[in-house]
Write a protein that binds this DNA or RNA. Structure first.
Lengths: 112, 112
DNA sequence: TATCTTTGGTTCATATAAAGATCATTAAGT
DNA sequence: ACTTAATGATCTTTATATGAACCAAAGATA
């Protein structure tokens, strides 16, 4: 990560992360779990869990998903079956798709 | 990050990441964007985009969300309005909830 | 009120994710 | 077939996210 990158995030991304974080915190309280307990179960530190619940965008997605899974926050708010089904479908579809994209060569007249 | 952490991920987390990655790649191809172009738009490197599309769990969630947003992959497969609405509702609910969880003190007889 | 627990911020050391560059392979366009 | 471009993969360097150990503040229980 050279040259000190300062990322800019869209509002949608920020809202999505904040939503997941809020849902996790809510679910954790409903299940009467302390932050430390949930962090232990997920194999992460309490500090990281705090940042996740705050909707911090600079957390590794694996940690967020893991915590969400443990407390039962469904990603895609769809049932789990659909997820794996869709995953299989998508994989099948992908092998049929071209592997690389290509521009219409140099300059193409499409103005008529 | 001391003591070399090797995380374990649940199947659900792995599938979810793989699904997002596959959807991103599919959407990128549909929009005729090269990996470099999408990476540039998201402000990330092409290498990172590759890992995201492969479903690598060790990517920062902000980068994943940003890319997904750009190519139009909806998280929670809900419309954006519902996301922000739900976010507001959740935030309102949160202030009403107790801020800390507590075990039922030492040993509580709940066996009657 | 006093005590114990949980949470919220720090700070610091270090493991590591990300950028950037390079190269081989694959595939699209001519 | 040839050319050009996109992808896949690997390597090195560097910025930084994470874990750990703090402390203070808030909250629950008695």
């Amino acid at each position: 990560m050279p040259k000190s990158i300062t990322r800019t995030y869209s509002r949608y991304s920020r809202d999505a992360a904040a939503l997941i974080g809020a849902l996790i915190r809510e679910a954790r309280n409903e299940r009467k779990l302390t932050a430390q307990e949930l962090a232990d179960r997920a194999g992460i530190s309490r500090g990281l869990l705090q940042r996740i619940e705050k909707g911090n965008l600079k957390c590794e997605i694996g940690a967020v998903f893991e915590v969400a899974t443990i407390v039962g926050v469904k990603l895609f708010d769809a049932d789990e079956n659909r997820l794996t089904q869709y995953l299989r479908q998508t994989r099948e579809k992908l092998v049929l798709l071209p592997k690389s994209v290509r521009k219409k060569s140099k300059v193409m007249r499409d103005d008529f």
